[in-house]
Simulated assay, not measured.
Amino acid sequence: MATVSGIHHVTAICDTAGQNIAFYADLLGLRLVKRTVNFDAPDSYHLYYGDETGRPGTLVTFFAWPDALQGRLGTGQAESIAFAVPPGSIEHWADRVGRRGINAEEVERFDERLLRFHGPDALRLELVEAEVDTEPWAGGSVDPEHAIRGLYGVTLAVEGYERTADLLGTMGYDPVGEERDRFRYTVTGDAGSILDVRCRPDLRRGRIGVGSVHHVAFRTADGASQREWRETLAERGLDVTPVLDRKYFESIYFREPGGVLFEIATDGPGFTVDEPEASLGEELQLPEWLEPRRAEIERDLPMIFYR
């Protein structure tokens, strides 16, 4: 049976690309590993951040939609993204984000220390002290002793968690804890192995927009295992897309029973297929089927201004 080995990436929606780069690269110290476009709507940027090479499990990505409405938090969404930082790093990060005028709150959850705050588009973010066997990007703006090691996990908001939990069991996730309305699941893997499900019948349905998570992608090794997953999900009655070529990986998409958009993405081929590791993220990259439209696409894309 094919397995997933944690989260591959999380994709959210931001307002402007420049503000997004200033926050996630300059403040959080992640590497901008790919500057491309939304393949389904190439008049908007798609930005990828991660470790030195953008390995699965370290990636957070953004569609830049400057004219979109603000998202509304609710059920059927991932309500927050959590990054892993080394134990003893919370004070460093509280000071770092505080100097940018960002209000942050230190809390404990499942006996772990974490710092929660909002990104520039009101996206909910968390830094969790955790032992994760990954290395930060050496060229980042944060002291490597405290730098982000990759994704820790995400929190999903659903009206009722039972059917979501059943699907997670099929995907190889095991229940490991419960606190009030929060149910924790984990899968054997590297970074991004934690998934929290919050049962929130008090909330109305969420609305996708600026400051919200668009989808959560899970890792699978290759195309063969991905095809197995597609068959398994279809047998469960889920509406699964065909395999889509995303150039840096292949993807299938479906909505889990609680309404959150899930993706299963292959680990490869990775981000060095169209530019060398040393210069990842420096130039606009397009898939070969959009390359004939490069002049038109570059003309229509907004200029990136850094704040």
Rank of each mutant, 00 (worst) to 15 (best):
E228T: 07
S212P: 08
G189I: 08
R227S: 10
R230M: 05
G169Q: 12
G211R: 10
D181I: 05
A165M: 12
D166V: 08
G177D: 02
E228A: 07
W229A: 00
D222V: 02
T220N: 08
R198E: 14
A221K: 12
I194S: 09
V210M: 06
A217R: 03
A217V: 03
D190C: 00
G189K: 13
R230K: 15
G209S: 13
I208L: 14
G209W: 12
M171W: 06
D166W: 03
V187W: 05
I194Y: 08
C199V: 12
D196E: 15
A224K: 14
S225W: 01
R219W: 01
T220Q: 02
E228V: 06
W229G: 00
R227L: 04
G189L: 07
F218I: 03
L195H: 03
H215N: 11
E178Q: 15
Y161D: 08
R207G: 12
G211P: 07
T164K: 05
G160M: 02
D202P: 00
G172H: 13
R204C: 05
G169D: 11
D181K: 12
V210H: 04
D196N: 06
E162M: 14
S225G: 10
T220F: 05
R204H: 13
Q226L: 15
G206K: 13
V197F: 05
D196F: 04
R182Y: 04
R230A: 07
S193F: 06
A191V: 09
V210T: 15
S212A: 12
V197W: 07
A221H: 09
D166M: 06
F218K: 03
R219V: 01
S212F: 04
D196S: 09
V176R: 08
L167H: 11
L167Y: 08
R230S: 11
D181H: 14
L195C: 04
T188E: 15
G189H: 13
S193Y: 09
R219E: 02
A224W: 05
D202K: 03
P201D: 10
D190R: 10
P175H: 04
E178N: 14
P201H: 04
D166G: 06
S193H: 14
L203V: 01
D190L: 03
G177I: 07
A224C: 05
D174R: 15
E179P: 00
E231W: 01
D202I: 06
V197L: 11
G206D: 14
R219T: 04
Y173D: 05
R207K: 14
L195I: 14
L168Y: 07
T164W: 01
P201M: 02
A165H: 11
R163L: 12
D222F: 01
G192D: 08
V216M: 07
R204T: 15
A165Y: 08
H215T: 13
R198G: 01
T170R: 15
V176C: 08
G189A: 10
D202R: 01
D196K: 04
R184T: 11
R205M: 01
S193I: 12
G192K: 02
A217N: 06
R207L: 07
H215P: 11
C199D: 15
S212C: 03
R200Y: 02
P175E: 08
V197A: 11
Y185Q: 05
V187S: 06
L168S: 14
A165F: 04
S225D: 13
I208S: 06
R219D: 01
T188R: 13
S212E: 09
V187L: 01
R184G: 10
